[in-house]
């Protein structure tokens, strides 16, 4: 296991004005009782609304925040105690921060990082050449970072995080603010990295396309608790999200009353039927429809990932603050 987290908890003390001179302290729980493990080579998406505890978890995983309680092991190390050692095995990309030197050409940042991480000259060359080619860095390697576009900078950030060949790459909102093309490019690069080198990816995001295209596994957190953890397909089933059967009928027909169907929307000869997979399978439903009317064409749609996650949030009533 590259990440082992057990009973992780983090609280913050927030002081508030209470009266003219008194200040009262309030405990705010950012993360409570989070447990999960990540095997080597996994691609894990970590999602949740703002303030759900994602970044707090990431900070504890990278060792820059000390947990209030619980056990964390990353790459076999205790992050907060062995932060420097861990840093050599870990790559971190913060979408809203930069680890590049703002005033210097991109290449200078890479060379400084090579010194900081003590990467051998040949390995450094190899990885830089690889990233330069795959991410198309050549045209702006000598441009000062402050003059790069966000898309170019993010490509630089990813390269910077990979120069020391980490086994685990943690990405905190890596695609935030990027245009569609830049997002697609980044995703395919990361997918490739995972496939060819087996680099474990852990990413937080608000862009669910990132999850859909990159992550085999999804973990949903809200109010500091893990709501769901599993493969996307499994989660879809577990929240019993409706699927949709769309049929084009030869002639209009009455399709009401089929068990398991929760809603019907007719659009001329095209009819959309929403159904619960737990009550009726797609095959059974098609058979039932075919018994009533002649089907010209059909399509079965999945619940969107947004729908799945929204339902996961709904499952759990918000605790009183």
């Amino acid at each position: 296991m590259i990440i082992e987290v057990e009973g992780l908890r983090r609280t913050f003390r927030v002081s508030e004005k209470a009266g003219r001179f008194r200040r009262s302290h309030r405990e705010v729980v950012a993360v409570q009782d989070v447990s999960f493990t990540v095997p080597e080579g996994e691609t894990l998406g970590y999602v949740g609304p703002n303030g759900a505890g994602k970044s707090t978890t990431i900070k504890m995983l990278t060792g820059i925040l000390v947990p209030t309680a619980g056990r964390v092991r990353v790459c076999g190390l205790d992050p907060s105690r062995q932060r420097k050692k861990l840093a050599r095995r870990l790559g971190v990309v913060f979408g809203q921060r930069t680890q590049l030197w703002w005033d210097l050409p991109l290449l200078d940042s890479f060379e400084l990082l090579r010194d900081i991480y003590r990467v051998g000259q040949t390995q450094y060359r190899e990885r830089l050449d690889e990233c330069t080619e795959l991410l198309g860095l050549a045209e702006f390697l000598s441009t000062p970072v402050r003059q790069l576009s966000l898309g170019q900078r993010m490509r630089g950030e990813i390269t910077a995080a990979l120069l020391h060949d980490p086994r685990l790459l943690v990405l905190d909102e890596p695609t935030i603010g990027l245009d569609l093309e830049s997002k697609a490019r980044l995703r395919s690069f990361l997918a490739e990295l995972n496939r060819t080198k087996g680099t474990t990816l852990l990413l937080t995001t608000h862009d669910l396309d990132d999850i859909e295209q990159l992550c085999r596994r999804l973990m949903v957190i809200d109010h500091g608790r893990v709501l769901a953890d599993g493969e996307l397909a499994g989660l879809r089933g577990s929240v019993a999200a409706e699927r949709t059967l769309t049929v084009d009928l030869q002639e209009p027909a009455d399709l009401s009353g089929i068990p398991g169907v929760t809603a019907i929307k007719a659009d001329g000869p095209r009819v959309h039927l929403e159904f619960l997979p737990s009550e009726v399978s797609a095959a059974q439903l098609i058979t039932a429809v075919a018994a009533r009317a002649e089907i010209r064409d059909l399509a079965v749609g999945e619940a969107s990932i947004e729908e799945v996650i929204r339902r996961l949030y709904d499952l759990r009533p918000a605790p009183q603050a």
């Binding site: 820059i64 840093a87 921060r97 900081i116």
Partner: peptide
């Protein structure tokens, strides 16, 4: 601004750096 996070996860002695 919190950018110190970047400084802290590097394998260096921050004061020396």
């Amino acid at each position: 601004t919190g950018h110190v996070a970047v400084d802290l996860y590097r394998p260096w002695d921050l004061q020396a750096a």
